[in-house]
């Protein structure tokens, strides 16, 4: 579990670098992703259902990226884009196409449905967190533009 979270941290930071995230924000992006992965694995073990786990982890990741965004006055997308990578059903998407071309229809259907449901859960989770009013995240600061209303992209 600890190795897993550490690996998620490294992976997210790597993606942050590839996406051109400023150096000062790498660690926050990494934290967002690592905590998200920890929540995902924990919930997945507890409920043994990776769709709920994805949903809850997505909510947490989006919340975190909004909190960091409010604190550091940077668009939340900077943390979110890299931070959701450990939750994204990337492997399932690829395996779906892979099974289709190797004539394994059943396996393709299984991983296709997993990819779709997890992507849906992810999108819903992000959406739920995005609906929380921004002023809760930028408390203590005043003036226009103090908050960052982020939405996932």
């Amino acid at each position: 579990m600890i190795t897993e979270v550490l690996m998620a941290f490294i992976g997210v930071v790597s993606f942050a670098v590839l996406l051109g995230v400023p150096k000062s924000e790498w660690i926050y992006a990494g934290l967002t992703g690592a905590i998200g992965r920890a929540v995902f694995t924990g919930t997945n073990r507890l409920l043994s259902n990776n769709i709920y786990a994805t949903l809850i982890a997505a909510i947490i990741v989006t919340l975190l990226s909004r909190i960091f965004a409010g604190k550091r006055r940077v668009p939340g997308i900077v943390y979110l884009r890299a931070g959701v990578f450990p939750l994204v059903p990337g492997a399932s998407i690829y395996y779906t196409a892979y099974y289709i071309f190797s004539h394994e229809g059943n396996m393709a259907a299984i991983s296709g449905i997993e990819a779709l449901t997890r992507a849906l859960a992810l999108a819903f989770g992000i959406m739920i967190s995005s609906q929380i009013p921004q002023r809760l995240f930028s408390a203590g600061r005043t003036g226009q533009g103090a908050g960052d209303d982020i939405k996932m992209s």
């Binding site: 994204v88 059903p89 690829y94 992810l122 819903f124």
Partner: peptide, 23 residues
């Protein structure tokens, strides 16, 4: 192989797309 090609996998694109449908 999945590790090698992960930088190309369109995972975030799929999630963005679903989110846009929802909005």
């Amino acid at each position: 192989i999945i590790g090698a090609i992960i930088t190309m996998v369109p995972g975030v694109t799929l999630t963005i797309s679903i989110r846009e449908f929802i909005f």
